[in-house]
Design a protein around this nucleic acid. Structure first.
Lengths: 141, 141
DNA sequence: CAGAATCCAATAGGATACTG
DNA sequence: CAGTATCCTATTGGATTCTG
């Protein structure tokens, strides 16, 4: 079998090309494509990190703050709201005094973990190549 | 076998938890973790779209502009530079007159397609649930 | 404890005009 | 054709203060 390795990404290429074509013909407004919303949600500064922490177990607000030390309360609140709004996490308030709030992944949030872990694995596996490429590029300038 | 479906994402959860723990102990500066760079590169407004277009075949600068009508030259240039710097695409200049430049995915860029298509498939599959969750959330307010 | 509100700095990104 | 340069606006995100 020749080209088995070369064809490794063929299915992915065809799948991507097909999707892009469908988007650009159906809804020509690319800014409305379903993926854009998802990708720039994941692309913000804290979303992925929070999802990773919650992938272990439910966390309270202050637990999340301690798990991610350099996040501000403002951004933690806002990112949690967005995740809740998208149905990826739940927010349960316990009417204790002082109140406590627990955040946990929903089934939909859990289903995100599979593609996410693939991407993260790729990032870890590729980081040395990327770093090398950056050094070479920067040195050429 | 009980819980087969419930354990569906168990491997992903454990994998994520393990990685997060490794990062937060080894390099406590979470902003330096290898994934952050990748995710907020993919999270910007144009990177994913450009990668999708290039997944079909190599494109020239003006072809990319036509394929993605609402990108400005400024952002197209800048995003292409970043992708080149990270070693995900190549930039070949043909000394014709007027000059033409061709952009194409590298092997590393091609290897990104697999995790990327998984994430996009998830986004497409989940978009209706996300939209429903948003409506419900916004209506409650 | 779990936020809400306000203010401010940095960055991203669009529009336009110019160039080899 | 394939950019570069400049200007300007909008969004992101941090710091701080206040509250039930």
């Amino acid at each position: 079998m020749t080209g088995l390795r070369a064809d490794n990404h063929l299915a992915a290429r065809q799948s991507l090309a097909e999707r892009f074509h469908r988007w650009s013909t159906q809804a020509f407004d690319l800014s409305q494509c379903p993926v854009r919303g998802v990708l720039n949600a994941l692309g913000d500064k804290w979303t992925t990190l929070i999802v990773m922490v919650l992938s272990q177990r439910a966390h309270r607000f202050s637990e999340l703050q301690r798990a991610i030390p350099d996040i501000s309360k403002r951004m933690l609140t806002q990112t949690l709201r967005d995740l809740e709004r998208d149905g990826l996490i739940t927010r349960r308030v316990f009417p204790t005094k002082p109140p406590s709030v627990e955040y946990a992944l929903t089934a939909l949030g859990l289903s995100l973990l599979d593609p996410l872990v693939n991407l993260i694995a790729w990032a870890e596996h590729s980081q040395s190549q990327i770093a090398a490429a950056r050094s070479a590029f920067d040195e050429a300038a």
